[in-house]
């Protein structure tokens, strides 16, 4: 079936938008989503089959199939009668990177949640967003509202350029999460505006 659904309802149906929430294990992705989602975070299961070729004999491929399934957690925020925002959490481990392309496609931006005690766990996410040229911010998850290191230190450790916002965030509180999302959206606007003015020259 070669049918690709078209948007026949452009007049009255809402538009979906998506922000990707990334970060290492235990960095607080699900907490972040749950704090602001109007629905209890749901989970969709995505599967991919990869075919591995036996290393012995190229002329006689012995295909082994491996099946990987991964659960993607997500939440939803209705921003108006014409706009629904989805927050998709990335799978916890690097080896599920096959899903990231799909998560990032069409997203307006990303948030990388950082647990400063395990800073290196967010490196893959930062690398990935940069490689895809997706606007993103870094949100340093503060537990109990305490942060002991300056944002500059985190910036240096993460090696992100000065124009990438780094904010403090308590992933458990709705207000803090809202501010982080606002920061991310504003950053996306700044970048888009700059790109437009460049193009206009």
């Amino acid at each position: 079936m070669a049918f690709v659904p078209s948007d026949r309802s452009a007049g009255h149906a809402p538009t979906p938008v998506k922000i990707v929430i990334a970060g290492g294990f235990g960095a607080g992705k699900t907490t972040f989503v749950a704090a602001i989602s109007e629905i209890i975070p749901l989970s969709t299961e995505a599967a991919m089959t990869s075919v591995s070729v036996g290393v012995d004999d190229n002329s006689k491929r012995q295909a082994g199939k491996t099946t990987t399934t991964v659960a993607l957690d997500f939440g939803r925020i209705t921003l108006g009668s014409d706009l629904i925002l989805y927050l998709f959490g990335t799978p916890g481990q690097d080896r599920f990177f096959f899903m990231w392309d799909e998560l990032v496609r069409g997203a307006i931006g990303g948030v990388v949640l950082v647990d400063t005690r395990r800073l290196d766990e967010c490196f893959p996410a930062v690398d990935y967003f940069e490689s895809r040229d997706l606007p993103f911010i870094v949100a340093v998850n503060c537990f109990d509202g305490v942060v002991e290191h300056k944002i500059d230190d985190v910036r240096e450790a993460l090696d992100v350029p000065g124009d990438v916002p780094i904010v403090l965030c308590d992933a458990r509180t709705r207000q803090s999460v809202k501010l982080a999302l606002l920061e991310m959206t504003q950053h996306a606007i700044t970048r888009a505006a700059a790109a437009h003015s460049l193009a206009a020259r």
Partner: peptide, 23 residues
């Protein structure tokens, strides 16, 4: 059923109008 957003806008990060609405 009908669908919205099915064609998957790859340009969403560059759509200023949309971004302002989200903001």
């Amino acid at each position: 059923v009908e669908m919205s957003g099915a064609s998957g806008s790859e340009q969403a990060p560059n759509d200023l109008n949309l971004l302002e609405r989200v903001l």
